[in-house]
Design a protein around this nucleic acid. Structure first.
Length: 426
RNA sequence: GGAAGGGUGGCCGAGCGGACGAAGGCAGCGGUCUUGAAAACCGUAGACGGCCCCGCCGUCCGUGGGUUCGAAUCCCACCCCUUCCGCCA
């Protein structure tokens, strides 16, 4: 959510930001509703001041044993007018809030202009895609032939876009989670959280999934909860409603969670393999920081996520998302894309964003620089560190051998109980 | 699932429908004292919003309704927390 005062002072900057995003936002209506709301509110508050004054006089008169029935009679009428006017003000306020929650974040000045992912800008590459001396297989074929991924039985048990991992496949998933969490907690300074995997409406609104993107999530029937689409939701909202002591900042949190996505609009894309599933594992990184540091913090957040890929020896690149490809809440986003031989291109495996105060304002996360200082909104950031299912897929494809076996990256071998290779049975 | 108790300012904790934005304590901030610090004492002190914005006004005592000229205080519904019982990994 943007600052209403800022919007009033900079309506043109707001329009320009929306134009850069290619977002359709009723800016003029927003500004008009705000104007009408303030006008009504001022009138209402004048009436309330009158009432308060009269009530005080009535109280005083009664205490002195005087008769106040005439004033009470007069105030009865004022009270009715207040009630009616409150209705109007509340109506305008609700509309204003509704409009405000629909407005996406303003792209940072450094974000490249563009309409779609085709306009994203590559920032750097690391590692060389391997030259295979044979025809490499896609991970969904490797997974099945190695008997470590089972899509068919998952379809039977649940449905399309789910998978069983089996044997060393399940073990590899678990090893990756453990490896990532260890790296971020031991070497990058993050505090591990194990969050709830469901969250309420307020949390979903806080990070920006609601009200616009309810259709992308799974609602748990009989409850007021959604399955989380990312650990960003519980972890960012961990400090919601709080005023944090400035000395505590910056706060770094990391969390493993399964992620559940309905992705209603994704039918037909990435239908095979682990790339687009209704449920997947992810290790998330979240930062709460002082505003003036947030863009430096974004760079170091990206480095923390990149470190995972580097240690796993996976070729990747970093791209800066263009204005048209930014998610709703983000002011600036870098995606990490891993080389996926089956796609013959780089595929998103992490998304690292600076939300500035957009989420903090929705979730009411503030801090005080000094004891007694005014409360300010923190800046929030998050990034995948990494999406585990896609990492597993990338390992299978990039580490495959001609005989159909897959080598385990060195750093994972201890986490695999010494297993160095996954080979076909028999 | 059942029973009881409870949600008040950064924290703890009082609060007969009218003098309560809310006693008191702690923490904080400013000052006195001190070589300095601690202690003691004095003062100050919330968040959000509106406006004719160095001030004035409004709102906020879990949330939402209701009663009333007037609600932290009364009524209704809901949410959350704690304890006990049951059930359960």
């Amino acid at each position: 959510m943007l600052d209403l005062k800022w919007i009033r002072a900079h309506p043109d900057a707001l329009k320009e930001g929306m134009r850069r995003r290619g977002a359709e936002v009723p800016v003029d209506e927003l500004i008009e509703v705000d104007r009408a709301w303030r006008e009504k509110l001022t009138a209402l508050e004048r009436l309330k001041a009158e009432r308060n004054e009269a009530s005080e006089a009535i109280g005083l008169a009664k205490r002195q044993g005087k008769d106040a029935s005439e004033a009470i009679e007069r105030m009865r009428e004022v009270a009715a007018r207040i009630k009616a006017m409150e209705q109007e003000v509340e109506g305008l306020e609700a509309r204003l809030k509704e409009l405000l929650l629909q407005v996406p974040n303003i792209p940072h000045a450094s974000v490249p202009d563009g309409r779609s992912d085709a306009d994203n800008v590559e920032v750097r590459r690391a590692g060389e895609p391997r030259q295979f001396g044979f025809e490499p297989k896609p991970h969904w074929e490797l997974g099945v032939s190695l008997d470590i991924i089972d899509f068919e039985r998952a379809a039977k048990v649940t449905g399309a876009r789910f998978a069983f991992l089996k044997g060393l496949g399940a073990r590899l998933e678990r090893a990756l989670i453990q490896f990532m969490l260890d790296l971020h907690t031991r070497e990058h300074g993050y505090t591990e959280l194990w969050p709830p995997f469901m969250a309420n409406d307020a949390s979903m609104t806080g990070t920006g999934q609601l009200p616009k993107f309810a259709a992308d999530m799974f609602r748990v029937e009989g409850t007021d909860y959604y399955l989380i689409p990312t650990a960003e939701v519980p972890v960012t909202n961990y400090r919601m409603g709080e005023i944090i002591d400035g000395a505590e900042l910056p706060l770094y949190y990391t969390a493993y969670s399964p992620c559940f996505r309905a992705e209603a609009g994704a039918h037909g894309r990435d239908t095979r393999g682990l790339i687009r599933q209704h449920q997947f594992d992810k290790v998330e990184l979240v930062k709460l920081v002082k505003p003036e540091t947030s863009y430096d913090e974004l760079e170091s957040l990206v480095r923390d996520a990149e470190d995972v890929l580097q240690r796993l020896g996976l070729p990747y690149r970093v791209v800066a998302l263009c204005t048209g490809d930014l998610t709703f809440s983000s002011a600036k986003t870098y995606d990490l894309e891993v080389w996926m031989p089956s796609y013959g291109r780089y595929v998103e495996i992490s998304s690292c964003s600076n939300f500035e105060d957009f989420q903090a304002r929705r979730a009411e996360i503030r801090f005080r620089r000094e004891p007694g200082a005014k409360a300010e909104y923190v800046h929030t950031l998050n990034g995948s560190g990494l999406a585990v299912g896609r990492t597993l897929a990338a390992i299978l494809e990039n580490y495959q051998e001609e005989d159909g076996s897959v080598r385990i990256p060195d750093v994972l071998v201890p986490y695999m109980g010494g297993v160095e290779r996954i080979a076909p049975a028999g």
